[in-house]
Amino acid sequence: MKPLSDNELSAVLAAWRAPEPPTGLLEGVWARVDARPPAWYEGGWAFRFAVLCVGLLWLVALAAPNRAVAPHASDSLVVALARAGGGP
């Protein structure tokens, strides 16, 4: 069978009509917008920020002038910070 020409194809395709959009589409849009977490929460930024803070605290503790020369393996960050601040 001979294929359709460009004009014939356009005329045939025009016979297919897509349905109309449902009512209340906008409400669904706002529901999606409001349900989405804030931008700063996406991409693990809160977690990255927390890791950065912990890392910086460790650096502060390591650079502290009153820090013990040979730290014990059991030294926690809290103890290290307390020592840096002149504590026990």
């Binding site: 069978m1 001979k2 294929p3 359709l4 020409s5 014939e8």
Partner: peptide, 14 residues
């Protein structure tokens, strides 16, 4: 796309 549809829908010619 047009090539494929021209052949596929050829029998729908008015």
């Amino acid at each position: 796309a047009r090539q494929a549809l021209r052949a596929e829908l050829a029998d729908l010619r008015a």
